[in-house]
Design a binder for these strands. Structure first.
Lengths: 151, 151
DNA sequence: AGATATCCGAGTGAATTAGTGGGATTTGAG
DNA sequence: CTCAAATCCCACTAATTCACTCGGATATCT
C-alpha cells in the first residue's frame, strides 16, 4: 500500500514543469538538476505523462516539454493515475457489473475496497497543479536556497 | 498502490472469525475451508492480528481464536493497519515535525501525501467489523451456497 | 554540420510478495 | 496416560515488481 517513486517523483516533476514552462519549453535535464532525479528515469515518467495527454513535447534543440492544458485543469489525480496506472487499491472494485467475484457475485469486502477507492479519488481529484505551484513559489520565496524534498 | 493479499485475505478471515466465534473458538482450519485460504498462510495473518491485540487465542485441542473485543469496536482500519503494517502511502507524511525532508524542511508534495493519507484513514476507520458481519450474514441468507469472494 | 533535445526499448540488481514446509508446544478428551 | 487437535514459530523459496541504467535512433534549432 505504498505509492511508488514513479508517483512521488513524477508529481514533483510535474509541479516543476508547471512552474517553469510558462514562457519556454522545459528540458528534462533542467528538471533533473532542480529536482535531483536522474535524466533517464525522468524520461520514463514524462513519457507516461505525455501518453496520458498531460504534457506536450517539442523535439530538437531548445525543445522540451510544456503543459498540455492550464495547470488549474490538471488534478493531482490525473498525474498520479497516469504514473501509477490507476490508483485502485484492489482490482475487484473496478469491476462494475455483477459478474465480479466467483460464484453468484456477492462479495462483502468489495464494498470496503470500493469505499477506500472512492475516498482516494475524491482526495486526489480535489487538488490541482495550480494550487501546488502557488505553494511551491511561496515556499521558494521564503527560502531561496531550499533544496526541495528528498522523497 | 495496491493492497496486498495480506490485507485482502486477512479482512475476510477476520469477518469470518467475527461471524463464527460468538459461541466457540474458531480454528484456522475451519476458516481455511470456508474462505479457501491455505492454513499456513492464515497462520501468518492471524499471528499479526493477535500481536495487534485484535484476537485472542486458545491453545490445545478444541482451541482456536476469538475476537479480543466486540466487533463493533474493531474497525476495518484496525485490521488493515495490523496486516499491512500501516496504511501510509508515503512515509514522509508520518513525520510530524519540521525535520522531515532535506534542507530546511519545506516540501510541497508532503501536503498532498498527508491529505491522501487522511482520507484513507477516515474511510477505513468509519467501517466496523460488525457492519460487515451483518452484511455477510444477509448475503449468505439470500444465497446459501455462495462461494464468497475470490480476491 | 553539430549541438541539443526528445524518443524508445531492452536489461538488471535489489527488494518485496505470496506463499510452503517442518517441527515444537499446549491442552482437552477418551 | 496417551493421542489427536490445535496453536506457535521459525526458515526457506519462487515469482513478481521496483527502481532504475544504458545504448542508440531521430528530430530540429543555430
Amino acid at each position: 500500500m505504498k505509492l511508488s517513486t514513479k508517483g512521488r517523483y513524477g508529481l514533483r516533476a510535474m509541479i516543476d514543469l508547471a512552474d517553469y514552462s510558462e514562457y519556454e519549453a522545459v528540458s528534462i535535464s533542467s528538471i533533473s538538476e532542480r529536482q535531483s532525479i536522474s535524466v533517464s528515469y525522468l524520461e520514463q515518467l514524462i513519457a507516461k505523462l505525455k501518453k496520458a495527454g498531460l504534457v506536450n513535447s517539442i523535439r530538437g534543440a531548445q525543445g522540451g516539454y510544456v503543459l498540455a492544458k492550464p495547470a488549474i485543469d490538471i488534478s493531482v489525480g490525473d498525474v498520479l493515475r497516469a504514473l501509477e496506472g490507476g490508483l485502485v487499491p484492489v482490482d475487484c472494485s473496478e469491476l462494475t457489473g455483477e459478474s465480479s467475484c466467483s460464484g453468484s457475485g456477492h462479495c462483502v469486502t468489495k464494498f470496503v475496497w470500493q469505499r477506500i477507492n472512492d475516498s482516494i479519488q475524491d482526495a486526489v481529484d480535489s487538488m490541482t497543479l495550480e494550487e501546488l505551484v502557488a505553494d511551491s513559489r511561496r515556499v521558494r520565496q521564503s527560502n531561496p536556497e531550499g533544496t526541495g524534498c528528498d522523497i
